[in-house]
Design a binder for these strands. Sequence first.
DNA 1: ATCATTATAGCAAACGTTTGCGTCTATGTA
DNA 2: TACATAGACGCAAACGTTTGCTATAATGAT
Lengths: 333, 333
Amino acid sequence: MPVTIKDIARELNVSYSAVSRALNQKSGVSEETRNRILATAKKMGYQPNSLARGLVNKVSNTLGVIIPDILNPFFAEITKGIMETANNFGYDIFLCVTGWDEKKEREYIKTLQEKRVDGIILKSSKDKKNDRFDDITVPYILLESWPTNRKCSYIEVDNEKGGYMGAMHLLDCGYKNIAFIGGKKESYSNRQRLEGLQKAFNERPEDIETFKAYFGSFGMSSGYELSKDVLSSGEKIDAIFAGNDIIALGVLQRADELGIKIPEELGVIGFDNISYARLPQIQLTTIHQPKYALGKIVLETLVDEIKVKEHRIIRKITLEPDLIVRKTTKKIV
Amino acid sequence: MPVTIKDIARELNVSYSAVSRALNQKSGVSEETRNRILATAKKMGYQPNSLARGLVNKVSNTLGVIIPDILNPFFAEITKGIMETANNFGYDIFLCVTGWDEKKEREYIKTLQEKRVDGIILKSSKDKKNDRFDDITVPYILLESWPTNRKCSYIEVDNEKGGYMGAMHLLDCGYKNIAFIGGKKESYSNRQRLEGLQKAFNERPEDIETFKAYFGSFGMSSGYELSKDVLSSGEKIDAIFAGNDIIALGVLQRADELGIKIPEELGVIGFDNISYARLPQIQLTTIHQPKYALGKIVLETLVDEIKVKEHRIIRKITLEPDLIVRKTTKKIV
DNA sequence: ATCATTATAGCAAACGTTTGCGTCTATGTA
DNA sequence: TACATAGACGCAAACGTTTGCTATAATGAT
């Protein structure tokens, strides 16, 4: 039973309103009583009740963030950007981790709204077929996907361009038999990256001999498993474009076990540029994504949308990727 | 303006209580009206308001988790354990990241309680001197530290034993000039680990020649910076015990740049066993901590403490560490 | 037919805030 | 002296729930 405004009012023989106004630095109380109120509030250990406050204000200063996987440094770093920025704006964050489970995603959307968050940031695990989010009634922004009904803002790094840049680099190096080892087949960002590869290959048909795409999930073990088939089948593959950096790490592990020389016998390129990619022992060539900025900007955009009540502007924000050449690719022949 | 219980009641010409009881599967409504209520609730898109509910129930089904750093896979994995378990229990999580900032930690403790969380899990950044948490009035559990007033449960891996095991291993290998490169000097877990080293060295004075401890912060760059002095000063150091795995990665990077051979010229051992430690290119010898289990158990313990209102049992839970020998240490001479 | 029992239903208070409005007192002006 | 003005303060409703209590209706037992 924590102390309430009423307790303070009773103690001092003033009205609730006086206490409330004093606590919220509003006018309508004299300097003198304000000070008395503030003093006894402190003395009694008063803690405002945000539930009650939210009930009348219809604002909770709370945001929901839904991501598939907190262990992937890509999401962890975005989350960091979101959190630090949210803190600056005075928001607290409900973090929800779905493990790529669409059912959990729906459940979180439901309970977040019941808890009256002021907005939601969502990296969805849904595939193309039902990617409209009509069950969301608060302001929300999508990370890395765009719903078919086009009713909300979204932000992403230009995945197609990233795929294109990486593919070009592989061709420049002289790799000719390339495999793409992606994550979930239906994933929007995954598909975009793949289109980037295709575009590059279409532009330079003379430089590419074979190309094939494989899909699994967005984890290291998936890269490890898939690359087994890719590398130990008869076909000669001389470069692998991984759907993200941790998949690439799985590929590298497999190559290590198979005794395949990187980058001479096999070029490997990842996506994301997670911090572990630049370790001297790893030196993974990859496509950089400004992860922290992604989180920062998506949060700023969301608080912006929360502020405007009438006609919200639907924004499509695209950040630039960047090719980082390290030691898992190099000019061959 | 979302639809409320009152709206449903008005629509159906029944009382609020009937609607409330129907929605919460309580007795006191006939099957027939219950069905009617449920049907129109769905039709009107009713979403319960958790703020109002929490106000009267004094329960929010919400927990706060305060950690210093989400980018460190050690905390990320603990967090994952916490989150998945919380989800099973029906709790949502306010995640708060302090960046090792004590002021932010205090602020988060305050706002979490204003938002009426049912409990708090706290990995504190406070140092020894003022490690009592008298400002916390809800059930809470500490990760990796024990307040001087001993008024709450806490959980950790046996850090001293971990330090001891690691030190013994270094001595077994034949390393004689050992440096400890820790994180924050005042950190509880850091100190415990150090004591483990000391204990091992005290037991085998004939096997150790020199030992020195350095402190910085719990990041890769700190390991990188500190090891510069350690390795390029005149003194010969043949093994480094890092305060955690990412510090160890920083050390490895420095050694790489300095052309120091691992493990022949320098043995390196970390702490935590983050997933990147077992990459074939890294193969870091380290002390394993059951991180996911840590998160799972701390969450379970917390919901347990929340349930009992009267005399809470203060628990001290200790999990076992484990020595994982890989390629950054080996028997020399 | 009478009474006890049970199930259904509604009323109203309570949870802890905020805030529009009205009242009162003190001050300043004519 | 009379009156307008402004500042300080309190009242009470509202936010959206839950729940103890009472009233009513229906059922069964005697």
